[in-house]
Amino acid sequence: MSGVVAGVDIGSTTAKCVVLGDDSRILGKSLSVVGIDIVKDAERALEAALADAHLSRSDVAFITGTGYGRYKVYFGQLVVTEISCHARGASFLFPGTRLVVDIGGQDTKAIRINEKGEVVDFAMNDKCAAGTGRFLDVCANALGYDVSEIGPLSLQARRAVKVTSTCTVFAESEVTSYVSRGKDPKDILAGLHASIANRTLSLMQRVGVEPEITFTGGVSQNQGMVRALHQRLGAPVNVSPLSQYLGALGAALHGRERLSGGAS
């Protein structure tokens, strides 16, 4: 029997899918923007990952859904919370992980895990856009940049401008007022990244900061954020180009366990 499994992670902003082979090697993956029709977006995410793996639907033995839209993954056989999936994915990629920091498009989580990749404790902010990808998105727009540009630009800052507003809306005006006062956008961006790092740290402290720390979610692809977290923690964080897929990867791994009859 084929042991190919897939994990579909439907986030607030993007859909991720990972197709995993028998040997837990990644055969294919996909990343796409989530629109209004989440059911269709989930299907497309799977199709794209299968195309990347040169496989068809009939090759997949088990599909697991996760993320904020996990109940819209109708074609799946299992649904697992994104907290368990990020824990599992992070532990798979970086076995020494004890704390996962997941900064997504619309929420932020700190997840403390054990050596088996199981969740011990977690804290989360999903009530407020401050400290999430959305905050960076809004501020990038206010400065006239695409969100993909701001991380690298922030790395060129000479002197970070302190951003005092917590609220995204107020930060947006604060940022605009710094621009009109002639501050360098790079310095403002560095301040914005530092502000999120601060907020993230307080979330992490709620569950206990313990190395190794693995950074996951869409914002982990922002180098400015990686450095800001590193500086604030005084210690490096694990990050990889796969960090954004760790929820989907974790989901696929949970599915593999279920398939082989183990506990999940």
């Binding site: 619309q106 009530k127 856009a129 401050a130 959305r134 995204t168």
Partner: peptide, 17 residues
């Protein structure tokens, strides 16, 4: 349902749609 002005924006736009 959102208590954040930014997150409410998405919710409101969905309601319009």
């Amino acid at each position: 349902s959102s208590v954040c002005a930014v997150l409410a924006e998405t919710e409101i736009i969905n309601n319009v749609a």
